[in-house]
């Protein structure tokens, strides 16, 4: 019986999470830059958030309202400075800086990166 309940819960959760992914993808596309290997050439005398607040307000808002935004973990933490280094997607080693207690051996999991589950700019679990 318990197994059945767990199975139903897993299926329901998957459905909800998928919906979350779709919603997220749709809204991100409305006002985000398409992230490639290189950051577009911009006025580098302006800080990340100063520009992105105007260019990608949804991304900025999501980040700003998130826990990382609250404590000032800025764009550069995951994406690099944009000039010398730019990562469209964050690197897991960076996460370990603060979340060493949450360290995962990806060899033993189906997911391959922290960002596979903690996605979007809120970085909430299965955003």
């Amino acid at each position: 019986m318990k197994r059945k309940i767990y199975l139903i819960l897993i299926i329901l959760s998957f459905g909800l999470l998928s919906a979350g992914f779709i919603n997220n993808t749709q809204s991100e596309n409305q006002n985000s830059l398409l992230l490639k290997d290189k950051h577009p050439k911009v006025d580098w005398t302006i800080g990340c958030t100063e520009c992105h607040e105007e260019i990608t307000p949804k991304v900025f808002k999501d980040w700003n309202m998130s826990k990382h935004g609250q404590v000032g973990f800025g764009c550069f933490i995951c994406h690099g400075d944009g000039q010398e280094e730019f990562n469209a997607k964050g690197k897991d080693n960076g996460c370990l800086g603060c979340h060493s207690a949450m360290e995962v051996n990806f060899k033993k999991t189906k997911v391959k990166s922290c960002f596979d589950c903690h996605n979007g700019h809120t970085l909430k679990f299965h955003n």
Binding site: I46, G74, D81, E84
Partner: peptide, 10 residues
Amino acid sequence: IPELVRANPV
């Protein structure tokens, strides 16, 4: 650290 400088470059 370029990343830190990026936050407020000037």
